[in-house]
């Protein structure tokens, strides 16, 4: 991965970010998009403390693994 690209994994607890792109496999990208996580979606990071993350998308909370978070670039 290029230097300087921020992913969801780098976001701190409580931070509000906007999704830029979803890298990674087709399956994962489609699943995230179908859940409404796509380019421009605001995501609130509830918790990112070393384990899986908890994020708020719309009104639902999702737990997602670090492997997934690593593939979601954000602004």
């Amino acid at each position: 991965m290029k230097e300087g690209v921020k992913t969801l994994l780098h976001a701190k607890s409580g931070e509000m970010v906007r999704v830029q792109d979803i890298l990674g496999g087709r399956k994962m990208r489609n699943r995230l998009m179908e859940l409404g996580v796509m380019e421009g979606t605001p995501v609130k990071v509830y918790s990112n403390e070393g384990g899986p993350l908890i994020i708020l998308v719309g009104n639902s909370r999702f737990a997602l693994g670090q492997g997934v978070a690593q593939k979601v670039t954000v602004k």
Binding site: M28, L32, F62, A63, G65
Partner: peptide
Amino acid sequence: EKDEVFLIELP
């Protein structure tokens, strides 16, 4: 399998 997909909704 490569594609890691841990994702679960927390109701």
